[in-house]
């Protein structure tokens, strides 16, 4: 296959990484042609027109707009082609992920904590099934980190204060590097982990073999009661709060007349900054939980609210 022909290059292992590899090959070929032409001309002129060499120097090329316009437009057209190619693959890589099999990733100095919907958690490792897309919902507890899997040609910063969703898919079972690519302090270079891609059957077995733990959603439900959320959102209290049953994934009309889709990010923001997006016809009464819940508790709450709408995780 052509990808083996790029020197020192391990072919990527996902459908998207094939596109990136092809783009890389295209860039390499284009650059090699430009470099070859340029170096050939420079070497030729240097040899031929070296001082003292009696080469014909009459009829010098007249400066003219023709030359300038032609190499300007030639460069521009090539660049435009590369731009369009790169952009189209980029949009596929970062397309809004389908709501498939959600795995939460929490980055903190200096480890990756991953959490499966069934409650199985891992540190500096992530087991995933091959051949199907997996959606990662990523959050950072402290500084900016970056989730980087070279074998998939895929990277996304994990910026504190927001969720980043990223879809990954691996074709071949195996162990692959997971790196932190954004400098994050002392042990940045040790914030590395392993992606373990398994056949779906092996993956299911692996999930059941893990230490028994309760699913994220039920832990979230417990938190929901402990933190007192259920007092207002439970529907029986004196204070009127928007009901959460069936909320996830639905459009929510806001008091300023706009509408948002109730996704992970919206739910997270509503817990931490409840007064920034108030649901239409409700009073902005809810206190902020900023600083009162950790990223790991937040993702359990989000999982619980999702489960109220019948979603798996």
């Amino acid at each position: 296959m052509w990808r083996q022909w790029i020197p020192f290059w391990q072919p990527g292992l996902s459908p998207h990484s094939g596109d990136v590899d092809l783009l890389f090959a295209g860039l390499l070929i284009a650059s090699a042609l430009v470099l070859a032409l340029l170096f050939f001309l420079v070497a030729l002129f240097c040899a031929r027109y070296r001082a003292g060499n009696p080469a014909d120097r009459s009829h010098r090329v007249k400066k003219s707009w023709h030359w300038e316009v032609s190499w300007t437009s030639a460069s521009f057209v090539c660049f435009l082609g590369l731009f369009v190619w790169g952009a189209s693959v980029y949009f596929q890589i970062y397309r809004t992920p389908a709501d498939e099999h959600d795995i939460f990733v929490v980055a903190k100095q200096w480890m990756w904590k991953t959490q499966h919907p069934g409650g199985q958690s891992e540190i500096d490792a992530l087991h995933i099934p091959v051949g199907r897309p997996v959606r990662l919902v990523m959050a950072s507890q402290d500084v900016i980190h970056s989730f980087f899997i070279p074998a998939l040609r895929l990277k996304h910063d994990v910026v504190p204060g927001r969720y980043q969703a990223l879809e990954i898919e691996v074709d071949k079972p195996g162990h692959y590097h997971l790196f932190c690519a954004e400098y994050c302090g002392t042990d940045h270079s040790r914030m590395i982990g392993e992606i373990v891609a398994m056949e779906p059957a092996d993956f299911s077995r692996w999930l059941t073999e893990q230490a028994p733990s309760s699913p994220l959603a039920s832990e979230g439900g417990q938190l929901f009661r402990e933190l007192g959320c259920s007092g207002c959102h439970g529907g029986r209290g004196a204070i009127r709060a928007p009901p959460l049953d069936g909320l996830y994934g639905k459009p929510v009309p806001l008091s300023d007349g706009s509408t948002v889709i109730a996704d992970d990010r919206y739910i997270r923001d509503s817990i931490l900054m409840p007064r920034s997006q108030v649901v239409a016809s409700y009073e902005p009464l809810m206190p902020s939980f900023e600083g009162k819940v950790s990223e790991e508790q937040l993702l359990r709450l989000v999982a619980y609210i999702k489960s109220l709408a019948g979603h798996s995780s």
């Binding site: 783009l23 660049f79 790169g86 980029y90 890589i93 070279p150 895929l154 990277k155």
Partner: peptide, 14 residues
């Protein structure tokens, strides 16, 4: 140019 090219930059940046 490689790095200006969006999809390759996702892999190569940092």
């Amino acid at each position: 140019l490689f790095l200006a090219c969006l999809a390759f930059d996702v892999h190569a940046t940092d």
